[in-house]
């Protein structure tokens, strides 16, 4: 039995119960209101009142669940992450700034932006920052009943920024889907047929593509893509490598109706170790090509 999660699980159960009860009351209220709409007005009013009460209970349940998620991240995940990867810091409430996200050069400006679960620090001498990001586009629909505004998410996933260990001219983007947003990029064909099939490579300087994408690195990108489901995009700009994984997932989130146990925490740890995996697989910790200045 995972005693350390006992308190969280009992709080979670209470929140879930509120959501279920509230949901049932809401459903009952809606049914009453519908019946009342056909037969008698008083029943409809009662139905609406019941539905509103049910909805309030649901919201209370969700509120309690949100607070539990926050506490879980603060009390359990923060400690676990800092132990698993010394030298990093975790802030569940903060995220990457919009500027960092758009520096990737292949993610268009969002109408609604949300970012959380900030991770930053140094792993094996390589500085990085990352967070969960959600980008949404505003849509307006004109109907005969009026105008409807809604948002469609076009990116839900993780974005990483790593310190890159090679100095190069121009920029390079390796994308599974889409194309660069800025001008001056041209498509390059690498020697690997498999790599060209899976990724589209764009660069402002041909030589930069061949300098960064050595056969080893192309193989490594292939392996990383296999290990990380979703659409992956790598952008090499200045001193940094930006990685975006559009996997339609909100990482490090406790789920409703799933017990908090070691297996769930292990999954979070696995998601955390993706950072280390990128650093090791892409050999970002190799200090062969850049004379590092002393960090003070």
């Amino acid at each position: 039995m995972d005693d350390k999660y006992l308190n969280f699980n009992s709080q979670k159960k209470q929140a879930e119960t509120k959501i279920i009860i509230g949901g049932s009351i809401t459903a009952l209220g809606i049914i009453l209101a519908l019946i009342g709409n056909v037969n008698q007005n008083s029943l409809m009013v009662i139905g609406i009142i019941v539905a509103v009460c049910g909805f309030i209970v649901v919201m209370i349940g969700y509120g309690a669940f949100a607070s539990l998620k926050r506490n879980f991240k603060e009390q359990i995940l923060r400690k676990m992450f800092e132990q698993a990867m010394p030298g990093i810091s975790y802030d569940p409430t903060r995220g990457l700034s919009e500027g960092v996200v758009y520096e990737t050069g292949h993610l268009k400006r969002a109408d609604r932006y949300h970012s959380e679960d900030f991770l930053g620090g140094e792993v094996d001498g390589v500085e990085f920052i990352s967070s969960d990001v959600k980008l949404e586009e505003r849509h307006v629909e004109h109907t005969k009943n009026g105008t409807r505004v809604y948002y469609v998410a076009y990116f839900i996933g993780r974005i990483f920024r790593f310190e890159f260990n090679k100095e190069f001219v121009g920029s390079l983007q390796v994308l599974e889907a889409g194309s660069p947003l800025h001008r001056g990029f041209k498509k390059v064909q690498m020697e690997s047929v498999d790599f060209n099939k899976k990724f589209r490579t764009f660069t402002t300087e041909d030589i930069t593509a061949f300098y960064i994408l050595t056969p080893d690195i192309m193989e490594a990108i292939h392996n990383l893509e296999r290990r990380n489901p979703g659409r992956i995009g790598l952008s090499f700009q200045g001193d940094h490598l930006y990685v975006s994984i559009n996997n339609n997932r909100d990482t490090f989130e406790v789920q409703l109706f799933r017990k908090i146990d070691d297996s769930m925490v292990e999954e979070f740890k696995k998601d955390l170790l993706v950072i280390k995996d990128f650093i090791m697989t892409l050999k970002l910790n190799t200090n062969l090509f850049k004379i590092k200045e002393d960090k003070k």
Binding site: F210, F289, I291
Partner: peptide, 20 residues
């Protein structure tokens, strides 16, 4: 030595670009 390793990388890149 670091600079030489770097020139080796540049040379390999130039060679691969030429061959491509």
């Amino acid at each position: 030595q670091t600079a030489v390793a770097n020139t080796e990388e540049h040379l390999q890149a130039a060679r691969r670009l030429y061959n491509a």
